[in-house]
Design a protein around this nucleic acid. Structure first.
Length: 255
DNA sequence: GCGACAG
DNA sequence: ATCTTGTCGC
């Protein structure tokens, strides 16, 4: 059975269809200039997978809401979620978006006043083969402004970007702040120099929904104290912590 | 045919 | 994503 090829074709078509609903310009309720006046709440989401059984279909999703510009953590929730779809490069949203929706639903009913004005997603936005990565998918589905932030470069044919070259480029030139990733005149995303002094590898930023490329990059930088922007970094820490507890719990119950 | 590929 | 301790540096 050529199962994966079929599902991939189906998903690919769906991405193209949904991308028609993506808004590439800034359409948010705060200023998209310099200090981002009016921006108070920035969200972040991430998912961690407990180690162990390969067939494990349980993961931990975390959603955070930080105050801007203080970056104080106002909300951080994580919960176990069932993961059914496999991870296939270029189709991450089909594996994780349902979990994100569940997390947002919980926030909406428990702390509606903390609904974020923009959300950073652990993955890519337009830095994707069909310009519709996980951040775009989640943004369009929930009609929430999103920004994609990836720690590694997703290979896109036609693009001249190479992870190793970019890594060297940023390591050798401390002055370098950004490097666009494009194919011809089409810009997919931007490799951004890591915040802080210890990290050298860039992060890859691209707009998801209702945010421009420029705003996506600027906001990612304004929310960073370490390599990974705070909203996502905190979500990563929280989901990871719970994932470990789950491993421990499984171990104890089996003993 | 081999390589490369967010999490 | 995850498997993993120490270690170099501020």
């Amino acid at each position: 059975m050529a199962a994966e090829r079929d599902i991939t074709e189906s998903w690919s078509r769906l991405q193209v269809e949904l991308s028609a609903r993506r808004i590439a310009e800034d359409r948010v309720d705060f200023s998209t200039s310099a200090p981002f006046a009016g921006l108070r709440l920035v969200g972040g989401v991430d998912i961690s997978y407990p180690r162990g059984d390969e067939g494990s279909d349980t993961a931990v999703v975390a959603l955070t809401v930080l105050a801007f510009p203080s970056l104080d953590v106002l909300y951080a929730h994580s919960e176990a979620v069932a993961i059914t779809a496999p991870y296939i490069p270029g189709f991450l949203a089909f594996r994780e978006s349902a979990a994100y929706r569940a997390a947002f639903d919980r926030l909406r009913r428990s702390h509606p006043e903390l609904w974020p004005q923009v959300v950073m997603v652990d993955g890519n936005g337009t830095l994707h083969p069909r310009r519709f990565g996980s951040a775009c998918h989640v943004g369009v589905e929930m009609d929430v402004p999103t920004i994609g932030v990836a720690k590694n470069l997703l290979h896109i044919k036609g693009t001249d970007a190479d992870a190793k070259q970019l890594k060297r480029l940023f390591a050798e030139d401390p002055e370098l702040q950004e490097a666009p990733i494009s194919a011809g005149s089409e810009i997919y995303g931007v490799a951004v120099a890591p915040a802080g002094e210890s990290a050298k590898n860039p992060i890859f930023v691209s707009p998801g929904h209702r945010v421009s490329m420029r705003t996506a990059v600027e906001l990612a930088r304004c929310c960073s104290v370490h390599r990974v922007p705070e909203p996502i970094r905190v979500a990563d820490l929280r989901s990871r912590e719970v994932a470990r507890q789950m491993e421990q719990g499984l171990f104890d119950s089996e003993a």
